[in-house]
Write a protein that binds this DNA or RNA. Sequence first.
DNA 1: CTTGGAATGTCAACAAGGCTGACATATGCT
DNA 2: AGCATATGTCAGCCTTGTTGACATTCCAAG
Lengths: 166, 166
Amino acid sequence: MQDGTRSGGEALLFLTDEQLRQGIEAMFFAYRGFTADPDRILSDMAYGRAHHRAIHFIGRAPGTTVNNLLNILGVTKQSLNRVLRTLIADGLVESRVGVADKRERHLFLTEAGRALEGRLSNAQRARMRDAYRNAGPEAVAGFRRVLEAMMDGDMQRTYTRLKDSL
Amino acid sequence: MQDGTRSGGEALLFLTDEQLRQGIEAMFFAYRGFTADPDRILSDMAYGRAHHRAIHFIGRAPGTTVNNLLNILGVTKQSLNRVLRTLIADGLVESRVGVADKRERHLFLTEAGRALEGRLSNAQRARMRDAYRNAGPEAVAGFRRVLEAMMDGDMQRTYTRLKDSL
DNA sequence: CTTGGAATGTCAACAAGGCTGACATATGCT
DNA sequence: AGCATATGTCAGCCTTGTTGACATTCCAAG
C-alpha cells in the first residue's frame, strides 16, 4: 500500500516514478519555453536573464531595497550589484538613498526601465496566457498548487508575501 | 468580452494580467526548488547542472547519440562536449562507436554513472513526490497540461517522443 | 560620544557554462 | 572522387554566479 495503491483501492498512479520523471522533464522543457521570449528580446541588447529578473522585481515592488531584492533573487550582493550598476548607468533603474535609513538604497524603474519591463513582461505573459487558455482554469489552479508545493519553505513565504502585496 | 469575461458571463479571471504575473513568479520560485536538491549534491563534486542534464537524458535513453542529446538539451556541441569529456574521463559515461554508422557515438551510463544518476533523480523525485502528494492528482494533471502548453513546438514534440518511448 | 554592527558598494580573482568561429578526422553516400 | 554528416577540439569571448577583502555610511546601544 505504498506508492501505487492505497488500502481503499484508490490508485496513486500519479505518484509512480515514471509519472514523477515525466513531471521533471516537463518542468525542464517548459522552463525553456518560459524564458525563451524574454531571452530573445534581451539578447539584442547587452542584457541577460539576470537583468530581466532585477527589472521584473523592481517593477513589481518599486522602492524595494537592495537587501530585499537580494533575498528574492537568491544571489550574492556582488552578483546583483554588477547587474544593478549597468542598469543604473544605462538609465533604466534609479537608486534613491533611503529616507528613514540612509544606508538603504531604494530602487525604482525609470521611464525607459518601465518601457523595457513592459516589453519583456508582455512577451512572457503572452506565452503564459496562451498556455493558460489552452489548458483551462482548472488546470491552471492545479498548476499553481503544484508549483507552490515545489518551492522551498523560504521561497514559499517570499512568494506569498509578494503575491498578497497587491 | 476580452480577457476578463465572456459573453455567456463565464469569468475568465484566470487570464488577468495579475494572475499571469503570479504564474510567472510561481514558475521562477518553483524552478529554484526544483533544482535545489540536485544542485546541492553536485556542488560537492566538480559537477554542475549541465552534467546533471546530460546524465539524466543519457540514463533516460541509453545509447542515444551525441546529436540526439544536442537536440534535447538545446546547447552547442562545444558546450556539451566539454561536459561529456569530463563525464567520460571520470568513468561515469561510456561512448561507443556506432554499429550501423561508425560516425555516431552512442552514450551509456557506466555503473558509477547509474549510481550518481540514482542519487540525483531520487532527490529530485522526492521533492516532486511531496509536491504531487500535497497538491493531489487533479492538480497534477493540470500542472502537466499547463507545462506542456508552455513549451515551444519543437520541445513539445521532443518531450512527447521521449515520454512515449517508455 | 564612542563603538559595534548593519547596509551598501566595490575591487579582484575565479569558475561554470553558455556562445562563435575555425579546423580536423572519420565515415557514409552519391 | 567528392560532398555531406557526425563528432571532436582549440581558442576566445560573454554572462552570471562564487569567495574574500575592504571602505563607507549610518543606526543604535552602551
